[in-house]
Simulated scan of single mutants.
Amino acid sequence: MSYARQPSGMGTHPELAEMRERLERTASSGSAIAIEGLILLAGAYTAISPWVVHFSGAEPNLTINNLIVGITVGLIGLGLTLAPDRMFRLAWVVVPLGVWLLISPWVVTAAHGAGAGIIWNNCVVGAVTALLGLAAMGLTIGVTRRRTPTTA
């Protein structure tokens, strides 16, 4: 006896095409493109901010911290821009990175404290980054939320 083998896995699920179509529609919207670009810019600024605000010499640990977090946020923003269908679910990572930027002047420089310019820089950049991450997450939630049929 020979049984016809049915393809298994989610790749053949009938709702997968609909989910991909909604994701592409959302990822190509104007607001998604703007958020992705702003995340990329926030990451780039965070990476260069130690030299813009002139705290690279005074706070070497915070300089390294901002450089690493900035590159990470920038790469996520670049990934969202280049391959939104693959990277959209990674957008939630931007929020904790923004929160880390907010608290990092006190955590990284706990022994001797950071200057006011450094604190203001990281607080503003961290808040903007976290808000952009929340906005990107909101777009992701809009894609994955199932529509419930209404009965008349």
Rank of each mutant, 00 (worst) to 15 (best):
L139D: 01
T109W: 03
S29Y: 07
A42G: 07
S56D: 10
W51F: 11
W120D: 11
I71M: 08
L78A: 10
N66H: 07
M137C: 12
R89S: 12
A27E: 05
I64L: 15
V99L: 05
A111I: 15
Y3N: 14
A83C: 14
L82D: 04
I119L: 05
W51I: 03
I33L: 09
E18W: 08
A116K: 12
L131E: 10
T148H: 15
W100Y: 07
S49V: 04
I141E: 11
I141R: 13
L132D: 01
A127Y: 05
V128L: 12
V95A: 04
L97P: 00
P96F: 02
R5Y: 13
L78M: 09
P60A: 13
V95N: 02
M137F: 08
S104F: 00
A135N: 03
G126R: 02
R25D: 09
Y45K: 09
A111V: 10
W51G: 05
E36H: 14
A42L: 10
Q6E: 13
S2L: 11
M19S: 13
L131R: 08
V107L: 05
A110C: 13
E21R: 13
E18S: 15
G113K: 10
G142W: 06
L90S: 11
S56P: 09
R147D: 15
I103L: 09
P7F: 10
T46W: 01
N66V: 00
T109R: 05
R146F: 13
A130R: 04
Y45I: 12
H54Q: 13
L102P: 02
A34N: 04
V93K: 01
A116Y: 11
I64P: 07
V95F: 00
W100E: 02
A47P: 05
L78V: 06
P96H: 04
E59G: 09
V125L: 06
V73Q: 02
N61Y: 15
R146E: 14
H112V: 14
S56G: 08
A17P: 03
S56F: 09
R86C: 09
G74W: 01
G77A: 11
L23R: 03
T148S: 15
L82I: 08
R89V: 07
A47G: 05
G57M: 14
G11R: 12
N121T: 05
S28G: 11
I39W: 01
H13V: 09
L101W: 00
M137V: 13
V94G: 01
L40M: 08
P105T: 06
W106D: 01
V73W: 01
S49R: 02
G11E: 15
G9R: 08
V93W: 00
V107S: 05
I48V: 09
A32I: 06
L139N: 02
E36S: 12
P14W: 14
T144R: 13
T140R: 12
L75R: 07
A44Q: 04
T46H: 02
T26I: 07
S104E: 00
A114H: 01
T109D: 10
L82Q: 10
